[in-house]
Design a binder for these strands. Structure first.
Lengths: 406, 406
DNA sequence: TATGATTAAATCAAATTGATTGAAGTATCC
DNA sequence: GGATACTTCAATCAATTTGATTTAATCATA
């Protein structure tokens, strides 16, 4: 397939999103200031802001007088301009959240699962979504994101975590759920979704290129390149778990040996702690948290080993990508993550050389059991907000909400 | 800095480049067909092609009748529409080439160097460029690319190969040379330039995301992401040579141990062959070629070792990036590269899984001692040809030639 | 082998649209 | 009141789209 040409209409959509992004990230701004920052004329900004106000995405606030001249009316995001739903589930838990345009969590529902089959999970999701969005204007709900700890191909899971659930393999989850709840559904793996979430609302907000390491049941990575998630040629970029870190190390079901995931993941930590083989029992983060609180020496040794492997992995990432920063998050209990980060330091000498060694190279992301669901909720927001150059090209993809500004 | 808005003028430039790219890559095409492939209207294409013809970048050729209806006038690239100069040098050799819009090499000059200092090299380059471009219309020469085996920061070299040449460190090469030859000068490291060259004219022509491994005196990588070279947050992406591949391996001047470059590079091969420490003598590719032809067992062992390290490095790259393909080239004598590639196979199981194992994962690039110079010549061409989304954003950067279409 | 119908490409002319340019209005500080 | 700076109105501009027409080939039929 070839790239497409552009025209005025595409430019319009792009500019509207651009203004929205600048207002969102750079806080209340006057129109003249927006014009300066975008390079567009004041009149163009005037029209664009008018459209965005009409669409309910931004508000105008009476200016406070201060300097010389007429004070600028401040333009700011209206959190009630849009809502999205985030859904995440794995073998044990289903979490559903509702967030607004500012990324604030407005509601959360949680269910325990046991050997979840598609039909029952879809039923639970349908109920949760219905209860959460009740009372919010339907036309402002941009969509729902679904996150599962699995590889996704064409909006279908193709393998579901270390202990695979065959019922889900190839199940057309996005399509089925979309019909059920009547919303556009975005599907993504946990790592990429968490990276998108961090990019919209977290430490990644000011970063255009970063590498997000997601420590979950397994371990994965989400790449943000130029402000957009990068999925690779076949959608498998960020298969961080199968990075070979130990020559002739532990065997992995992928066929290689010494994969990172066998050393750094909740699954690996729990296996080390209990002595049971990986995948033989479901991962319980709380158990790890308790062991850490009790000062368990086996877990402590695991943390040290894991920190060593991760340190080398970060060096590889920096050498290949040179991201602005590496961000680590996931569902690892926060005290354990803190210990892990502490033992990863000092990092190996940077590719940037001694010249530029002042920049922060490693950051902790927001972590918690709702992280994947919040990442899921970020997917439709990202699609509706980002002034992606993709949108400039011809066939308007999936007509995102902002472009529907009449 | 924030991103910029767009307007009609940017759209114009983008569309013209897009059409030019499609004609260049997808061969002679009728205007209606171009319209179909870009999604633009036939009339828009009519105007755009008119501009490109007027600018001398494409030609119209009388159609051969064939099917029904009026035969389409074929639009095709005019190789004489633009010329660029490519310059590469290292400790031993200076190569200068002239290429046309189609990437054909129209001329080449070569000089031997010995401890090259800036003043004498600039003099040699100036002379070569003058002789090569004589007789070609000045206004059609888009610029010159310079490639050196070094890190580049702000168009200046910051370290020059394993055995550094302190005279060049920080020398404002692009600026000085630009003044001297009166052309825009683009500067890049050898790996990225070779990747751009491969993307414009070689196996990378149809690939939008690929990873180019350049085996030179050291080893480096050039990343093409979405058809554009990706340089990372601080311009150090593709520091492939310092990928840690051997835990606690050979020490490297970068401060780490076990860097890939200590095992796979002309420098490493020669050190292994001669027993002399790396960097103590200049690398001579011909000596390696002779040893290989003579069946030297030390070199043979080196090839096997290098293949093993590269195989693991490719696995890392595939896991992190998922490129469409990994391409290997450089200035390693071709028979040695062939042996190396043969011994790298079979690769480790792909991240794409068994489903998609048919795709070619590894390719050989054009290789030869003029590769870096041809890559250098590709830099101004790339800048003038590519319909990069960058160009859509506000401040028209460096007003490339195509946009000068009056 | 004329002849007209059909198909497809190229061209001409007018309309559209979002941004720019230019000018006037408004609010605050000094 | 003058200076400064944000806001708004009106006209212009430029590249694309829409719609209608022209040109040139093949095909079908008498």
């Amino acid at each position: 397939m070839t790239r497409s040409g552009t025209n005025l209409e595409h430019a319009r959509g792009y500019n509207r999103r651009l203004v929205l992004e600048i207002v969102r990230l750079q806080g209340p701004l006057g129109r003249t200031e927006i014009a300066r920052r975008t390079g567009l004329s004041v009149q163009a900004i005037h029209n664009i802001v008018g459209d965005l106000v009409e669409a309910g995405l931004v508000r105008r606030r009476r200016a406070e007088a201060g300097g010389r001249g007429q004070p600028a009316a401040e333009i700011l995001i209206d959190p009630a301009g849009a809502y999205t739903v985030g859904i995440s589930f794995d073998h044990r838990r289903l979490v559903t959240v509702l967030v607004d345009l500012a990324g604030s969590q407005l509601g959360l529902e949680e269910h325990s699962l046991a050997r979840p089959d598609p039909e029952s999970v879809l039923g639970l999701i349908g109920g949760s979504v219905g209860r959460l969005v009740r009372g919010y204007p339907v036309q402002r709900i941009w969509g729902a994101g679904v996150v599962i700890p699995a590889l996704i191909e064409q909006a279908r899971p193709v393998s579901f975590g270390p202990s695979s659930l065959p019922e889900w393999d190839g199940f057309p989850l996005a399509e089925t759920l979309g019909r059920r709840i009547g919303l556009p559904v975005y599907m993504e793996n946990d790592a990429t979704a968490a990276a998108v979430g961090e990019h919209l609302h977290g430490v990644g907000q000011r970063l255009r290129d970063f590498f997000y390491i997601y420590i979950g049941v397994g371990i994965g990575a989400g790449l943000i390149v130029g402000g957009e998630p990068y999925r690779g040629a076949s959608g498998h970029a960020g298969e961080f778990g199968h990075l070979p870190v130990v020559p002739d190390g532990l065997p992995c079901q992928c066929g290689n040996r010494g994969c990172l995931e066998r050393y750094v993941s909740l699954s690996a930590a729990q296996a080390r702690l209990t002595g049971a083989p990986e995948g033989s029992e479901a991962v319980v983060p709380e158990r790890l948290a308790e062991a850490f609180a009790a000062g368990d020496p086996t877990l402590d040794a695991w943390i040290s080993d894991a920190a060593g492997h991760l340190r080398r992995a970060v060096t590889m990432v920096e050498n290949l990508f040179d991201p602005e920063r590496v961000v680590i998050g996931g569902i690892l209990p926060e005290p354990i993550l803190d210990a892990l980060l502490a033992r990863m330091r000092p990092l190996a000498p940077s590719v940037r050389g001694p010249r530029d060694d002042s920049a922060i190279r490693l950051s902790k992301a927001e972590v918690g059991l709702e992280t994947p669901a919040l990442g899921a909720a970020a997917l439709p927001l990202h699609d509706g907000l980002t002034p992606s150059f993709r949108l400039i090209a011809q066939p308007t993809p999936s007509a995102p909400a902002v472009l529907r500004v009449s």
